[in-house]
Amino acid sequence: MKLTLGPLQYFWQRAEVLDFYQQAMDWPVSVVYLGETVCSKRREMRLQDWLSLARQFAAQGREVILSSLALLEAESELSSLTRLVDNGHFQVEANDWSAVQRCVERQLPFVAGPTLNLYNHEALAFLQTLGMTRFVLGIDQGSAALHAMRQQADIGGRPFPEVEVLGWGRMPLAYSARCFTARARNLGKDECGTCCREYPHGFVVETREQTPFLCINGIQVQSAAYCDLGPELESLREAHVDFLRISPQQENLGIIIRHFAEALAAGKAAPRQGDSNGFWHGKPGQDWIDAAQRLSPSPA
């Protein structure tokens, strides 16, 4: 199992982005996902900037995948997507069917992102015939679902694609036409002034009894809780997960990545640092399931 650096979810200043990825050059991640997946108004980094970073990582021997938007509304967004797919070198993580269609039209291989809703082996097999090489498990899916997919694929004698699972980070839970950051500041979406740049970690909203609940990040709603599958490394190995995704955050990510990398190298679990692992266990995503409560993964 290898570590990957997932696509940046937040809006950072260009210098911050470049600094972050400069640090990442020293991190033990095998795959780096680059690009904007949340909002097309975030234009600190242009395609050329992402491609420049991509070439630097590729020169280091890392695999680079260019991630695409999860929600497309405007024609200009479709044009940007087309340019991304036509970059001539790097594979794309398709986070919407528009991206899948562009890849299929050009007969290019692609990674299926976590928002494509691939819940079963037949959906995987269908996309494999169209060029999918890897899929990122949907955020709400867990080990039982993955075991069932693999078991049924095996019965059908079908090769299984590479699997990637979110191992660390706030969980992306929803996408909307509405920008919730602009709404919180009583601004129209068209007049947002990309105010999300002031929230490099998004901002957390609490329930009325002051329990942290959601994290607002533009048109995306995340969990306030951090998903942490560090203690699950053994069950991830049993589920033949190929890649474990670490989601970018501004502080301490290098420490987190080394924490995972050391545990992987030692063949051990990584002690808990985060909040939730419920989805992996087929429970509410907000839950934390202790080792004592855990059942061994059963094929559904």
Binding site: L71, A177, V221, P284
Partner: peptide, 21 residues
């Protein structure tokens, strides 16, 4: 529904039950 239908896991996050599944 104010979220993109098919891509909202708020209910699943809190209850384990979602429109998708």
């Amino acid at each position: 529904c104010i979220m993109v239908e098919g891509r909202c896991q708020l209910s699943s996050f809190v209850t384990g039950h979602s429109p998708n599944s």
